[in-house]
Computed example of a mutant assay.
Amino acid sequence: MNEQLSPRISHTKSYVVSSIAIIVLAILMASNFLTLGLESNVISILWGTLVIVVITMIIQTLSIERNYAEYLTQLHNNKERLANEIKHRLWAEKTTSENKTRLQIIDENFPVMLAYFNSKQQCCYHNRAYRLWFSLKSEQIDNHSPQQFLNTEFYQGIKENIDNLLSGEIIHGQRIQKLISGSVCLISEQFIPHFDAKGKVIGFYTLYTPRILKEHESITENSKNNLVEIRSEKNSAEEKSSQNKNSRLSSEMNFASRVLKAINQGEFHLYFQSIISTNQGSNQITFCEILIRMAEEETNLIPPGAFLPLVEKYNGSRLAEINNI
């Protein structure tokens, strides 16, 4: 009952209660000083009314103080919430600005030609490399279909795969394009579908990665996957040179092992060659030239020009190390 009365009392106009209190108090004072001759029961009713009015005023005062305290608390909370929202908004704006700068740097320097088309095949995004490659401005691409701004070759690649793209399939392909400068460019293309939260395709990305072939590179077609491969003639020449070098080194090491074996088995022989004076009537041997030869199978002799450079190169002692390899 009290809980039901309190809201009614607190919502009663304060000036009404004050007016009643003043009137009752005036009547009581008049009856006391002017001897109006009021009956005692009337006076009791007036005093009861005054007490009720005073209690009502006290309740209203307490209610106002409580509401004021709640309003102050709510105002403080709103102030803190607003300060936090402003702080987070400033942080978000700063982060957005930084990310926009980073994205702009990526957009300007990303080497892949990137564009995004919605399900209606309208271009919603394109990077700088995409615009430069096709020599177009943003207004010529934005919200336009690829048929309106792409050349026939590139548009044909999208047209042939659009049904597979919208069904959720990722498409890979390659194309060869000859540039105005005469260079040959291999373009790798990818078409990637974009799904929403429900798994429905709502658009697709197109990525073109160009690579200009160098003079020593050539293109060969792979019949297994209908793709082309880049083969470097320079690398082939280097591989062949490396193989020849390894072959010579292996042959040299084998011969070094043979020389060491000849040293250990005493297969080196000394030969004396006489030197006779050319003066007339003189047949006297004045000098001898000592020649060294290495014996080989079937009584063949290997001249020093074949093994001495090897001995000088490895200083004799290195031959033993080579033999143990």
Rank of each mutant, 00 (worst) to 15 (best):
N2C: 13
I9P: 03
M29T: 05
F33A: 09
L36G: 02
L36V: 04
L38W: 01
L38A: 04
V42N: 06
L46K: 00
I58E: 00
I58R: 01
L72H: 10
Q74C: 05
L82D: 05
N84Y: 00
R89P: 04
A92C: 05
A92L: 08
E93L: 11
N99V: 10
N109L: 03
F117M: 05
N118H: 09
N127Y: 02
Y130I: 06
W133P: 09
F134W: 07
F149K: 11
Y155L: 06
K159Q: 10
E160D: 10
N164P: 01
G173Q: 06
Q174E: 08
I187R: 08
I192R: 14
G199M: 01
V201Y: 07
I202Q: 10
I202T: 12
Y208S: 09
L213S: 00
E215M: 00
E215Q: 07
H216V: 08
E221I: 14
N225A: 00
V228A: 05
K234R: 01
E239T: 11
S242H: 07
S250C: 05
S251C: 11
L260S: 13
G266E: 04
Q273S: 06
I275R: 04
S277R: 05
Q280I: 14
Q280M: 14
S282C: 03
I290H: 06
L291V: 05
A295G: 11
E296W: 09
E298Q: 12
N300K: 14
G305I: 02
N315R: 08
G316C: 02
A320S: 11
I322N: 12
